[in-house]
Design a protein around this nucleic acid. Sequence first.
DNA 1: CTCGATCCCTGGACGC
DNA 2: TGCGTCCAGGGATCGA
Length: 298
Amino acid sequence: MPELPEVETVARGLQREVVGRRILSVTLGKTDFIDNPEMLEGELPGRTIVRVERYGKFLLLRLSPGEEAKPDEGEVALLAHLGMTGLLLPREVSVPQAKHTHVVMPLDDGRELRYVDPRRFGRMAYLAGEVLSRELQRFGADPLEAGLEEFARRIQQRKARIKALLLDQSVLRGVGNIYADESLWRAKIHPAQLGARLKRPQVQLLYRKLQEILKKAIVLRGSSISDFLDADGMPGEYQQHHRVYGREGQPCLRCKTPIRRVSVAGRSSYYCPDCQKMPRGWKKLRKRKSRQKRGARH
DNA sequence: CTCGATCCCTGGACGC
DNA sequence: TGCGTCCAGGGATCGA
């Protein structure tokens, strides 16, 4: 699942592969994940990809001004979120299209930029000027750019659970389930602990561990646990360094206590019940039993 | 402000 | 082998 390190990996690959290339046209398949499909078709052709950036979990393809100069359009970009299963990669035209290819953009070098996404949990949008800047402002700090003070302020002033805060893109942009669990395990913090109840040393440790993990994961080109591939079609390797994520029942790599999985903020959360102590009053969350008998009681 | 529930979607795992 | 069911999860949205 593409989180910050995976998206950074894709952004670097695209920066190397498609910067300077002009988009010749746009062909769309299913469009229910695209903000305004007609806008893509109308605005992208003729524009050159001038830079590829990562913004949280988004890829930001900065584009050149249109051919008929629109003086007031401002900054122009194609925003792409990979959701759970999205891939954005350049391919030779001769390479057969993968199933679930929903956006194809032929480039001026004989290749095509293709967006493939079986589940279509991703998002794509052409945005310009004020609309673009407003959209970007909705998100919180980049965990690799934020200083300790800002990080601490965003966490300690909130009563929400730390896991929910880490996943909240308006608090921090780019962290998802894997790196949230991994950093909490390293910092020995229970995922259901409230942000406001964390002590300063805990916040500082979490800040350092989160950055450390994200940087290491970027070096290893991300985690490929579902189908993630970078812009070169290569999987990442950080999944081999996961300490808790996906290890339910297996011994904690610090203390051998079996790793547990609970639901926090509606997401699976893996943690060590011994290393990451439960906050007072915290109760184990539902095992998610079948809900067919809803009317049975009540 | 914070919570859980629900929905979106498909493929893979699993039970029988 | 095949069918049904559950589950993965980022994000939007809604009601409590």
